[in-house]
Write a protein that binds this DNA or RNA. Sequence first.
DNA 1: ATTCTGCTGCACAGATTGCCCAATGAATAC
DNA 2: GTATTCATTGGGCAATCTGTGCAGCAGAAT
Lengths: 159, 159
Amino acid sequence: MAIDRLDGRIIVLLAREPRIGVLEMSRRLGVARGTVQARLDRLQSNGVIRGFGPQVDPAALGYPVTAFATLQIRQGQGADVRAHLATVPEMLELHTTTGGGDMLCRLVARSNADLQRVIDLVVGFDGIVRASTAIVMENAVPLRIIPLVEQAAEDRDPA
Amino acid sequence: MAIDRLDGRIIVLLAREPRIGVLEMSRRLGVARGTVQARLDRLQSNGVIRGFGPQVDPAALGYPVTAFATLQIRQGQGADVRAHLATVPEMLELHTTTGGGDMLCRLVARSNADLQRVIDLVVGFDGIVRASTAIVMENAVPLRIIPLVEQAAEDRDPA
DNA sequence: ATTCTGCTGCACAGATTGCCCAATGAATAC
DNA sequence: GTATTCATTGGGCAATCTGTGCAGCAGAAT
């Protein structure tokens, strides 16, 4: 589960240049191709690397508005609310969080006006008691993983 | 910027089977290889597809605890706070949101106890007035994009 | 009618992948 | 001390894929 320095370098290299192949990676890292291949296989079966799916930008798709909504759920309705939210395409992510069975979800919309429609879709369900929304103005730090990977590699395998 | 049905099918196919090559995609979709290649190039230069970086699971890396922190910032300290937060590896994502210059960030930690350390790291900075944290219990819906892509494709190009 | 754009089908050389092997080195177990 | 296990190395092989270019065609726009 813990990763060593070489694993870390592989992940970082892959994150920086996703198009790179195993052979080129082995050249850059100065190890044998088989080693890189074995490490990659292990990282994937470990679940550390879930996959290499395309990273799609909702803004470029025509959904430039992002918002986070905190939902308060009626007791016992969690599963129903969850199923309901799963049907909303603009709902990209859903977490249940501490604090009285609340949920936090990430929404996108075509415009601020369209966000109203999305929110109505989301909260227009019986089990949801209250919702409060925060609209994202700027994504100051996009989802990143490299610093954490480097940290994890160093923890396991100090310089 | 808008995507049609074929673009949508390409993205969905790629999301479901990331390892797939252009040639195999063209076979599955019943179009010429050159077409798939041209579409992919266009999607990438459009920015719809940002890249194919590895999707790393923080839990598998040893960071099974996720939390969202809402930060209240002292006026004019936004840039400083942002720079400070960027130095924290456990801070995976940062947004500035509506509501008095607030910020919302995603954090991970090795344990609930370790989360305290991370939060101290985050809020131990002058420009941050107040922070409130919600710990994620369950990631009911992991970050997804397929439903939105399908929606966008149908909007553009009705069945 | 004409131009433009996107798709098709094909071809080619070059590179990469998946897979196999034997040998080496290091760490661990007996 | 010696044996065993495991990861890495360096090599090779066949099969596949990629990048690229080309000509023909159809539909849309001018």
